[in-house]
Simulated assay, not measured.
Amino acid sequence: MAPDERSDVELLAAHVAGDAEAFGVLFRRHRDRLWAVALRTMGNPEDAADGLQDGMIAAYRRADSFRGDAAVTTWLHRVVVNACLDRLRAAKVRRADSLPDDLEEYGQRAVRSEIGPAPVADPAEEAVAHDRRAAVIDALARLVPDQRAAIVLVDLEGYSVAEAAEILGCAAGTVKSRCSRGRTRLAELLAHLLGDPADETPLTAGNPTAGRTVPPRSGPRAPPI
């Protein structure tokens, strides 16, 4: 079957007009990126699938509310992130205490270095890298939901602060503040991995991505909904 060449806006408009296939085409087009955001926001596949499904149901039902003031992809991400945050808030995730600002760079270094594939030389190093990634994912799950969403979008998915602000429906300064607080909290939770802040070896040795902005990448493919 030939790919549908209609634009995102055209597909959404067709869905509103009654095209039974248009929304499915739109979802499949952006599924991987939406799934990656849901997975990293929720922390596990089961909750991520629920959050993504909630978001897509909301988008399906509220498609006529789209006014074109943002890209369709931005709108879809906003709906999915909000659905995930609603689930996290319903689970009564507790607010984490903020820490001194001088820990921020180490929290940022940790989350960028440890999540996502990194080159390893042998099975022993691979096991250590796996344990570190698991520790970071667990720490990320302990953040305040709004901070977690900001870090997922900016540090893990590679969105700019302005793009993340548009998705989250808040000011760019708010996104920066949430990222800063989230990174400092991560620095505390991951202190056992960071070691001496003056020594970057524990997290950055052999990892060419450490300290750099992570480019956008697709996550695992989403389950059907």
Rank of each mutant, 00 (worst) to 15 (best):
N82K: 12
S160T: 15
Y106F: 14
E104G: 09
A134D: 13
R142Q: 11
L76N: 06
R133V: 12
L143S: 00
V128Y: 03
W75L: 00
P100H: 05
A83M: 11
L85C: 05
A150I: 01
A110Q: 10
A127E: 15
A90K: 12
C84F: 04
V154I: 04
V93R: 11
A121Y: 04
A127K: 13
Q108A: 12
V111Q: 04
R109A: 01
H77K: 06
E125Q: 14
V79C: 04
V120S: 08
D122L: 06
V79R: 03
A149Y: 12
A83H: 13
A121S: 14
V80Q: 02
V136E: 05
Q147K: 08
L85S: 10
R133N: 13
A96W: 04
D155E: 12
W75D: 01
L156F: 09
D86C: 08
L99N: 01
A110F: 00
P117R: 15
N82R: 15
A135D: 13
D131R: 10
Q108I: 07
E104Q: 14
A149V: 01
D101E: 14
R87Q: 12
D97W: 06
A134C: 11
S113V: 06
R142G: 00
R109C: 02
I137M: 12
R148T: 00
Q147T: 02
E104M: 13
V81C: 08
C84D: 03
D138N: 04
P100T: 02
R87K: 14
N82T: 08
L153G: 01
S160V: 06
V128I: 06
L140E: 02
P119F: 01
L76Q: 00
V128T: 09
D122T: 08
E104Y: 11
R132Y: 11
P145L: 07
C84P: 06
Y159R: 13
N82F: 12
D101N: 09
E125C: 00
I115P: 13
G116P: 15
E104C: 14
L140C: 05
A135Y: 03
E126H: 10
L88C: 01
A135V: 02
V144K: 12
L153A: 00
I115Y: 14
A96K: 09
D155W: 11
Q147S: 10
E125T: 10
I137R: 15
A90H: 10
H130E: 15
E157M: 15
D138R: 08
L156P: 06
H77D: 13
L99H: 06
A134Y: 09
Q147F: 07
L153N: 03
S98N: 08
A150G: 00
E126A: 14
S113M: 03
A121R: 14
